[in-house]
């Protein structure tokens, strides 16, 4: 109800204005309460569905293979922390290691002995033997890891 305050003729009109503002307050409080209640349900639910972070050491060292296990021009995918990595024994006898997770959409790459390249079969991405993206959709090179030979073990190391 609208009240013409300039006419000033009705006391009930002023009363109704008070009632209206009172109702607005009640509605506001009720609304805030309901929103707060909903939020107090939704927030824990959202936090619940996001899994707790798994801490992984930034320094990692893994025995990827034994000396003599890989022929020249061959490679092996192995577990490196929570991700796969690839160890390549090049034709000229060097060992190189990279993450095996394609920088395009996260497929696991493989070594193509016929092409002397690292190849991702998912969308035909190619990297050279330095991990550089040379053809197809990958946007970035593969991260390279250090390779050390300790006695009989070929150890792949990631430093933070």
């Amino acid at each position: 109800m609208t009240v013409d305050s300039s006419s000033g003729k009705s006391a009930t009109g002023a009363g109704e204005t008070n009632v209206d503002s009172g109702r607005r307050w009640v509605n506001l409080l009720l609304g805030t309460g309901v929103v707060a209640t909903i939020a107090s349900f939704i927030y824990p639910a959202i936090r619940y569905v996001i899994p707790p972070p798994v801490s992984e050491a930034s320094n990692l060292s893994v025995v990827a293979a034994k000396v003599g296990e890989l022929k020249n021009n061959a490679a092996k995918v192995f577990r490196f922390g929570s991700e796969p990595a690839i160890l390549i024994h090049t034709s000229n006898g060097n060992y190189r290691a990279f993450t095996a997770v394609c920088t395009h959409l996260g497929c696991t790459v493989q070594y193509r002995a016929d092409l002397h390249e690292i190849w991702c079969p998912c969308h035909n991405g190619k990297y050279d033997l330095h991990g550089r993206n040379v053809s197809g959709p990958p946007p970035r090179p593969l991260v390279q890891y250090q390779v050390h030979i300790q006695g009989e073990d070929i150890v792949v190391v990631r430093n933070a």
Partner: peptide, 10 residues
């Protein structure tokens, strides 16, 4: 195998 290569022709 989460730590194996994706197969060709996928």
């Amino acid at each position: 195998n989460p730590f194996g290569s994706a197969p060709a022709g996928i």
